[in-house]
Amino acid sequence: MSAGVVAGQAARGVAGIARFALVVAATFLGLLAITFFIGRVVPIDPVLAVVGDRATAAVYEAARERMGLDRPLLVQFFSYVGDVLTGNLGQSISTGRAVVDDLGRFFPATLEMATVGILIGVALGVPMGVTAATRQGSWADQVIRVLGLLGYSVPAFWLGLVGLAVFYAGLGWVAGPGRIDIFYEGLVEPVTGVYLIDSLMAGEWEVFRNAASHLLLPASILGFFSLAYIARMTRSFMLDQLSQEYVTTARVKGVPERRVIWRHAFYPIRIQLITVIGLSYASLLEGSVMIETVFSWPGIGRYLTVALLNADMNAVLGATLVIGSVFILINKASDVLYRILDPRARR
């Protein structure tokens, strides 16, 4: 390859990264605008919340001025963006701590659950989708299709409750709500905040087993939803692939069917699948709100719902920002990954 071509590719790469950064920045700004807007349309007057509803008009005005609420909306918005960028999300009225600190404390729990969930979803969903596509119309295909539709129609919180009733109360296969039994609490020094990793690093097998037992059910339920989506998308990608002429070419060459399926049909879609898995992961972070509520799982989702019920707007908006940001980032990152990995899009 000549130097000119390489330079051209590099230039395009830089331009691509710049464009990507711009899109992500715009989307973040959009998210901030929405949270800002939500913060301003709250029927609860933030000034009243500070001065109390028996304050005189003069006191009220003074407080309003002090809080910067008399300035034009655009100025207020920019100062809000500045606050967020410097990590100032305000105080939570329910925990009394800075929202940023709360979020840092609660996030690892959500991350742990969603990650195990997506691993389950990928490990089962991809092979199921491939099987369904290669045996289109078979009973396996029908079962997978119904599972996929159930993933769109079963309420997560309901499945969580039923799961608790059956596997915890009924069969006793898993531990109940919460992240860990009280007995084990505090035994392991939190390093990452992810119990599975922390307990392994400390070599505490008992703690690890207990944490895993608590995690299994909620993560499996999240896994079910991502499995349904991943299997469905894999199936449809694979069906499209299997009808491609180059798959026939491979068969003409006498390539064994297993290799036809995985090397020729599946390999080209792995990149599309990364996007799907990314989307699914992002939606699991979102879906954890419901599951965490059902399982009393001390993650961001539960933090958000508790804040919602207490009308703790700083906490609500903070949690919304964090989940929204991660969601956007995963979304956009899988998009970029697609461009990098596909030889057709790479040139």
Binding site: E245, T249, R251, K253, G254, V255, P268, R344
Partner: peptide, 19 residues
């Protein structure tokens, strides 16, 4: 297949694996 009977197909745009 391939070893003893083989087939050239119509359009290389579709019959060659793109990746």
């Amino acid at each position: 297949r391939g070893a003893r009977i083989s087939m050239v197909m119509q359009d290389p745009k579709f019959s060659l694996n793109p990746v």
